[in-house]
Structure formats: C-alpha cells, structure tokens
Design a protein around this nucleic acid. Structure first.
Lengths: 119, 119
DNA sequence: TTACTATATGAGCAGATACTCAGATAATGA
DNA sequence: TCATTATCTGAGTATCTGCTCATATAGTAA
C-alpha cells in the first residue's frame, strides 16, 4: 500500500511535539504570501538588472529597454509588477516617466545576497 | 511602421550616456544568474515555510512534510533544490536525515524583507 | 539475506510566467 | 484640432515550475 500524505511515519510519532511547535511558530499565511511575492519580484534576471540600475540613478522606460536589449513593452510589463509591489515609483517630466527605487530595502536585499554567494 | 526593439527612441539620444553607464556598472551575467537563483529559492511559499522552520531547529523530512501537509516526496524535491544552492545542509542519524540552514544569510534575508513589508 | 523505514529521484501534468505583437492612452507642440 | 512621442495594456504563446505517482536507494534490525 503506497504511503499517503495523511499517514504519519513512525518518526512523526517521536517528533510530534517538534511538528506542533513548528506549526505554532510559523508565519501567518498572508505574511508568507507577501514575502513570497517580494522574493518572486527579485527572482528574475530582467527585474534584478532593472532594480540594480535604478539603485544608482533614476531611468526612463526607453533607457531601461536600451540597456537590457528588450522591447519597451517588456520593460513596461516588469515595471508594472515592481510598481504594484511598491518596490519602484516614478515621476513624470513631460511625456517621460522616470523610475526609481521606492526605498533602500531592495538594494539592501541584493547586497546581502551578493555577500552570501561570495562567501 | 511599428517600433522595433532595435530602434532608438528620441530620449535614447539624449540619455545615451546614462544607458552606457548603466550597462558598464551592471552586475556580471553569472552573478545575476546566481542571484536570481537564490531569490527563486525564496520565491515559493513552501520553501519559505521550510526555511523559516529550519531557522528555529533542525527537522527531518517527514516532520517537515507533516508540518506542511505535503507528501514527503514534495518536500524532498524542495530540499534538493535548497541543498543544491547550499542554503541548507543535513546530518544523518541512522535512517533519519536532519536538515538545517547552512548559514544565517537566509534568515537575515527573510527578516529584512518582513521588516520592509511591515513599513 | 530479508523486511522495514526514511529519503531520493524520474516522468508527467496542470498552472504560472516572461516575452512579443497589436493596439490604446497620455502629454506635447504645431 | 491633429500628429508625434513615450508609455501602458490585453491577448497569445513557449517555457518553466511545483506537485503527484511510481519506483529506486540507503540504513537498520531480525
């Protein structure tokens, strides 16, 4: 008989308290969801390049597209995603929209992760 | 005639130097790739729950499966991914493998991101 | 060895996602 | 007003991903 996910393995009986405590101290599901969304935003090379560039200076959509070698449409789609998560904001100057990082948390995350992979 | 990605928009002419500098100061492609992989590892609710639990104590596969309400197979697949990225390691005690975080960078990343979304 | 338990792994599938394309929208200036 | 430029957006599509299922592997104890 194949093991179902609802079955308990023997070690579960021994570790029952460990599991109970782990469940009790886990993050709330809405926190987990938002957390995952932010990491998803960083989990793509195009968006990482955009964020890393904006960390140095504000840039408009067409500059970013030129930098990345992608269509302005592709960049705009990604910027919308980053905007919705409030990772970037923009200011308008005539027809041109200049994007910048919303705060310094993102660059902090990228720096720490770079440090991690250089160890 | 629709605009092609190879065309330059007018603002590109003005901002040419901005784009050149952005390209010059961008991360190397292998760094970007590894960076994205690490954020991908964190960009999933199941893996976040696993990492958050392991941040508190080492746990075996079947404990994690019980905690998450998933099959041990599903957990094992995710642990392999985390192992390959050296985010977790394990020790064997008889037939049981106890997993733990490889270092404290991961919990640092999660904490900073939590801080960000609580602002 | 054989039986049993814990974990790992490959195949396959349903759902997510990152791009392109075509067309819409918004600010500017003639 | 109309044309132009910069950006946005919806639809479509190829690729990626996280799960399940079946099976393989590794350690333990009889």
């Amino acid at each position: 008989m194949p093991k179902q996910s609802s079955d308990l393995c023997d070690c579960r009986l021994i570790h029952r308290q460990v599991v109970e405590e782990a469940i009790a101290s886990s993050l709330h599901s809405d926190e987990i969801g938002t957390l995952a969304q932010i990491f998803k935003a960083l989990a793509d090379e195009t968006r990482l390049k955009i964020l890393w560039a904006l960390e140095k200076r504000e840039m408009c959509v067409c500059d970013l597209a030129a930098m990345l070698g992608l269509t302005e449409s592709a960049v705009s789609h990604q910027l919308r995603l980053l905007r919705n998560l409030q990772l970037v904001t923009n200011r308008r100057d005539g027809v041109v929209l200049y994007y910048r990082l919303a705060d310094n948390h993102v660059s902090q995350l990228i720096r720490i992760t770079l440090e991690h992979l250089r160890d």
